[in-house]
Design a protein around this nucleic acid. Structure first.
Lengths: 145, 145
DNA sequence: GCCGCTGTACCATGACACAGGTACACCGAA
DNA sequence: TTCGGTGTACCTGTGTCATGGTACAGCGGC
């Protein structure tokens, strides 16, 4: 049955390739602990059906995740999250975020934005999004307990 | 003569289109005050020659800058920075930085990064880059004063 | 064994963006 | 006018992305 993976949000019209969005969200889910080592991921065709996306696109994402040692293939049964994936994914997350922050600051300073403006913008957005996260946690409660 | 525009840094192998890099850097330069209203920008072929890039790529960037009301064409003479460009460019810079920060925070929080880690990363990178800026200002001195 | 599931490997197609190349219309100065 | 400069429009080639279709090999349950 599907629907256990509805936390995937795909933006087909965005500037990021679909398969890349899958890769990112899987890695972030592993880093966050939503996906645990040893856990099975939905089949290529299943996820393709749920997201209304071609199977080949999902397969490409899974291949990249396999190359990055996040997923492991169980011949004939499916793909499973590797036990040591959380370390790699946490590291990947840190690199991803660091790079984003680095670029944002580079653009800001190149454009003459002051450090005060920058801190204010950062704190405001952090408050907004962290509040959003807290509220989401509150709403979902314990869905599987 | 060229070389007055060598502060442009183009990464042809990056994931950002070349014309987009031109657009961004021009806007940031205007927002920072490096490019002033009424000032002429180098010709399409001149800049293309300096950066070893096709003229059409520069032309496309200039067209986008014209559409965004940053540059103004002087038929047969070249392109000039509009007087009211700095307002638009500052606003565009704020939007650009805000969007980058927004995405970075979204990825970080989705990956389970704590606000403390996030603040630490932000402050560290801010210190590093702002120090870099200060040093660059010190080296260049006052070139136009 | 047989069948249904799994991932995987191909090939072909259409759409789109990017960059390069060529040619044209316009303006200013000699 | 002639010439060199300007921006601009059109065409082409290339690469990526997403899709669709087909086929193969391995595993599990019947």
């Amino acid at each position: 049955m599907g629907m256990a993976w509805m936390f995937f949000s795909i933006d087909a019209d965005g500037d990021i390739p679909i398969y890349e969005q899958i890769v990112r969200q899987v890695k972030l889910a592993v880093a966050d602990g939503i996906l645990v080592g040893g856990q099975m991921v939905p089949s290529v065709r299943q996820l393709a059906s749920d997201l209304a996306i071609n199977s080949n696109t999902i397969a490409r994402a899974y291949q990249e995740l396999q190359s990055d040692h996040v997923l492991e293939p169980l011949r004939g049964r499916g793909m499973v999250v590797r036990r040591d994936a959380i370390k790699r994914c946490t590291k990947a997350r840190n690199s991803l975020v660091a790079e984003s922050v680095r670029r944002a600051l580079a653009d800001a300073l190149a454009g003459g934005m002051t450090t005060a403006e920058l801190r204010e913008l950062f704190e405001a957005e952090l408050d907004r999004q962290s509040a959003r996260i807290e509220k989401a946690k509150h709403v979902s409660g314990n869905g599987n307990a």
